[in-house]
Design a protein around this nucleic acid. Structure first.
Lengths: 139, 139
DNA sequence: GAGATATGCTTGAGTAGTCAAGGATAAGAC
DNA sequence: GTCTTATCCTTGACTACTCAAGCATATCTC
């Protein structure tokens, strides 16, 4: 059998590790009743001006499609975690805004997530994290 | 707003990058009519003695559940990419074996995947790849 | 300012898994 | 040998998306 390059090996191993990692994150966040994807949505909204973003930008920042965003936000709107706002300049757009409830839920979830992150990456130095982050930016 | 630790930032950014990466891999492999998960299954079978593995080990090596393996393998058995074999020592187990057809399909898919991997990680040195791989092993 | 084209979002239908329960077999305790 | 417990796999019901199509609105060309 042909030699497997380091690049191939890495992508394959990385896929399995990442899948397992995301399952652990989901378990960690399930205590607050949310999924990792919902957490990511709240995170990006929380960090935006007026806690508000366009749906397509939100989709891009978490790596899913626009239709995925529509489906994800439907229950979050019902639970008043996010609100729909119109853009007066462009009637095609509908902006998403994190409500007060959503902001509090985000802060609460962040406690567990911060703990998890710290623990999970405890064997990586901050310098290593930054180096790896930089490398991933380049791909 | 509270300070976001490097660990938190990394996990969030890494999630988005990984999601996009896996979609690109799926597109790359779709020319051979297979998904990344199917490729991973073939990869692990190909590298095993007699191209054969237990279903639970297969599940663990790619990071999905046993029931996920059952569902994934069903169409692959129908297409004669893998075969079901019994373990004479333990009637509970059913082993999965990569057929000749499956081996050829794997080698064919590997051409495109190798190209993709090389191109995708072209800005990483081999040393960097190995360092990052090592770090991911530790989490 | 009318027509063509592009953008933003949602929808119906489909796919790739998950989980919890269950059936079959195996292994350990006595 | 029988009872309990553990392991391996599959199944029904569900979730979290994807894609292609479509509607509404905006923008660009002339």
């Amino acid at each position: 059998m042909n030699k497997i390059s380091p690049q191939i090996k890495f992508l394959i191993e990385h896929a399995a590790i990442t899948t397992k990692l995301h399952k652990q994150i989901d378990i960690c966040l399930s205590y607050q009743g949310i999924s990792f994807t919902e957490f990511l949505i709240m995170h990006h909204l929380y960090g935006s001006p007026q806690h508000m973003m366009r749906r397509t930008d939100l989709a891009d920042s978490i790596g899913i499609t626009a239709s995925g965003v529509t489906r994800l936000l439907a229950p979050m709107e019902k639970n008043r975690i996010v609100d729909k706002e119109r853009n007066p300049r462009d009637a095609r757009q509908s902006l998403v805004k994190l409500t007060q409830t959503g902001q509090q839920l985000y802060r609460d979830s962040m406690v567990g997530f911060a703990d998890f992150s710290k623990n999970k990456l405890k064997s990586w130095t901050v310098k290593e994290i930054e180096t790896v982050a930089q490398l991933f930016q380049e791909i």
